[in-house]
Design a protein around this nucleic acid. Structure first.
Lengths: 151, 151
DNA sequence: TAAGTTGTAACTACCATAGTTACAACTTTT
DNA sequence: AAAAGTTGTAACTATGGTAGTTACAACTTA
């Protein structure tokens, strides 16, 4: 069981949009090339990010843009946008515990709070990190790279 | 995307084993009845818990028992035992970012630390809770239940 | 109008989860 | 030693989600 690669793909393409959109049109084809992920999947992910109010895209002309400042887009926002858990929560509960059994009757009640706390811990950590951090570090590494090649 | 119900099933059956095994043989059939989950699945989960050194089972005679004290079995131990992430981590990364692209070449490096931190946060929370807590609260609720019925 | 792009539907391939059936191996009881 | 009950496991099915693919209408710009 793993959290979908849509999440890392989304972070990747948002980073690309920030870094490249000043100099060029960042199309789904370009993003497909950078991520190694199918262009239709990219467009779907962009659609989810658009619905979440994180990016703008335009039919016809092409090219995606960020809607909010980098520092106001947390990894949590991205995670929620693309990895829909609906109302179910991160943990899946077996559906038919036996109400005749004292444990079966109460296990849900006992566990729910704890599972929610665990999920919260994950989400709080994701909330603490923003695209600004990711882009800054990426830019720094790219800059180092360039220096390395120059010597 | 959700964490498998094997996890909540495992917590459920371990709770049952603790609560019932003094008075009766806790067989996979019994646990299937309490959880509403197929007996073969129960035996598989018990097998994973056995491999992890959490329970003992015996062929033929039947009945599962806890191997370690309740307080030394954390929800993390159970999670790891039944929800194998292998070496992959909780987050799945898209596999072919383009090394020609400065973002594609570095995104993995930039994200890995952050994804690991998020995973850690989840796991630390699970580590902080033990079967002892779960069983204690379950017993307390069962006791309340009984009082309620008595009046 | 032509070229390039997005948005979306429809389909496929693949994999994991969970259920099911079946049965050999084992333990205990009689 | 036979019978009954149980575990461990293999093999198979059903289901659902992820991701890839093809196709095309709607749109924008040159």
């Amino acid at each position: 069981m793993q959290i979908t690669s849509r999440f890392t793909v989304a972070v990747h393409i948002l980073t690309c949009i920030e870094i490249f959109s000043e100099k060029m049109r960042v199309t789904s084809e370009f993003l497909a090339g950078s991520t190694g992920v199918n262009a239709v999947i990219i467009r779907n992910v962009l659609g989810l990010l658009r619905t979440a109010g994180i990016v703008e895209t335009r039919q016809g002309s092409g090219g995606a843009h960020l809607v909010r400042p980098l520092g106001e887009i947390s990894l949590y926002d991205i995670y929620v946008a693309v990895d829909s858990l609906d109302d179910n929560g991160l943990f899946r509960f077996h559906e038919n515990p036996n109400a005749q059994c004292p444990v079966g009757r109460n296990i849900h009640k006992v566990m729910d709070r704890r599972l929610a706390a665990a999920q919260q811990a994950l989400e709080n950590e994701l909330r603490s990190m923003t695209l600004a951090d990711v882009v800054a570090e990426t830019r720094a590494i790219i800059c180092e790279d360039d220096k390395g090649h120059a010597t």
